[in-house]
Amino acid sequence: MKFNLKMPVDLKPYYEKEVVDYRKALTRDHQDQVWYHLERAHIIAQAYPWPHTKVHWKMLRQGVREKSFREIFGQVIRLSLGGPFSFINQIPKGNIGSTKVSMTKPQQIPADIMKMFSELENN
């Protein structure tokens, strides 16, 4: 079994870009873009416990901002399970992390993120 402790240094800038873009969208009150960047950050971070947990925390806070009981409840569950499952590499690949989909459902990874993963793997 593979244990994931830290996000690889080469992957961090892609994750951090999504977080920065999320914050910009939040400042501009662009809700669709807020979730777009949070979900992309989740896909990138989901294999690494700490960044994965941080994304779910941001999603929980967004759920509170939107007064969405469904998102709040879903993120509380995801916060308790996401980090430990990342640590043991038992995650549904490509899952966006929000309550739009089941937390156990693998999803297709967006082409640009898949390309980035492939390029980093080959370096």
Rank of each mutant, 00 (worst) to 15 (best):
K93I: 15
E18I: 01
S80V: 10
T27F: 09
T99H: 05
S80A: 15
I44C: 04
F73A: 12
K24Y: 14
H30C: 06
P51N: 02
L11P: 03
G74M: 09
S80N: 06
S102D: 14
Q75K: 07
K17W: 01
H56Q: 08
L11M: 14
R78V: 01
P13A: 12
V76N: 08
V34N: 05
Y14H: 15
W57A: 14
V64L: 13
Q33E: 15
E39W: 01
Q90V: 08
K17C: 02
Q107H: 07
F73I: 04
F87M: 12
H56M: 12
V76C: 14
A47N: 13
I77M: 10
I91L: 10
R23D: 14
T104V: 11
H56P: 11
I88L: 06
K17M: 04
R65M: 07
I109E: 01
N89F: 02
I96Y: 00
D21P: 01
L26S: 05
S68L: 06
V101Q: 05
Y15I: 05
Q107L: 15
I44N: 09
W35A: 03
P8G: 03
G97P: 03
K100S: 11
K67C: 08
Y22A: 07
W57S: 15
R65G: 06
H52S: 11
G94H: 04
P13I: 12
G94Y: 03
D29Y: 07
A41V: 02
H56I: 07
H37Y: 14
G97F: 00
A25S: 15
H42E: 07
M103I: 03
I43E: 00
R78L: 01
W57H: 11
T104H: 13
I43H: 08
Y15L: 03
K17V: 08
L26M: 08
A45F: 06
V64I: 15
G83E: 06
K58T: 00
V34R: 15
L81S: 03
M103F: 14
F73L: 12
G74P: 04
K100Q: 08
I96S: 09
Q46H: 13
Q46S: 07
M59Y: 06
E39G: 02
Q33I: 06
N89S: 12
I91H: 00
Q107Y: 02
T99N: 04
P13R: 05
F87Q: 01
I72A: 03
H30R: 12
K24S: 10
R61H: 09
V19G: 04
P84C: 09
P106R: 09
V9E: 12
I77K: 14
W57L: 15
L81M: 11
R65V: 02
E39C: 09
Y36T: 02
G94M: 03
F87L: 14
F73N: 02
S80I: 13
G82M: 01
Q62N: 14
F73T: 06
E16T: 09
Y22N: 01
F73C: 03
F85S: 02
